[in-house]
Amino acid sequence: MKGRHRGAARRRPWNLYIGLTLVGLTAAMALISLVWLPHDPIETQVLRRFQPPNAEHWLGTDQFGRDLFSRVLAGARTTLMVGAVAVGFGAALGAVIGGAAAWAGRWMDEGLMRLMDAVGAFPPVLSALLLASVMGPGAVSGTLAIGIASVPVFARLTRANMLALRQADFVEAARALGAGDVRIVTRHLWPNVAGVLLVQATITFAHAVLAEAALSYLGLGTQPPAPSWGRMLREAQDFLVFSPYPALFPGAAIALTVLGLNLLGDGLRDRLDPRSRRP
């Protein structure tokens, strides 16, 4: 066994490295934007609009003469914040629901899973639209919509893994030794499910970044003038013919972040989830 896999194990996990680098880059952008920005990202200078990249404005300026580099940096903060909160929310609620369904079984299981199907079948854009209309549009309702949309996948994953593990020998053994339900869940099942959930969280994070961009594009997410990559794209779209940069850079930032997260997710899966390790 060991011999056969030696080659694969020695191969460097490039996806993990590249993924970590790209995600680290986005994180660094977000952190830097907290302490330093070359320009005020919301300051308008209409007479200086549509500048191509130059020494003063490294990525050029947008339709109101705002500095694109500063806006892309500050946008990283928005993106990571919304993504992290949404995924945290989705994973936490999903894990609880999936765990409850697996543990309670029977009609509770059936009911919760059908509810998850219904939520999962709800187009996320539609639920975001509804939430934005109820709570007012903004980062909060956008984040919540993305979080809710990601609950079913975590719930199903938790439930499936819990069910599989419940039959596992070590759980049977623990029960035979008189361990209580709570102890079995927290001590024996949860640590085994956590790795799978972490991988899923990374992938879902990537989806969340795309979803945040899409919602802000539709005006349902982050509100202007706060820099959000999706919103920047929407506003730049009308002026593409005059200057492609205001649409180009935020789009590239989204793509690189999502790419990083996806690669990171793949890399983590190879490490943490031995069953899906690729030959």
Binding site: I42, E43, T44, V46, Q63, F64, P224, P225, E235
Partner: peptide, 9 residues
């Protein structure tokens, strides 16, 4: 929306 962003600033 455009006028609003400028008014805000």
């Amino acid at each position: 929306v455009r006028a609003g962003e400028l008014v805000a600033d």
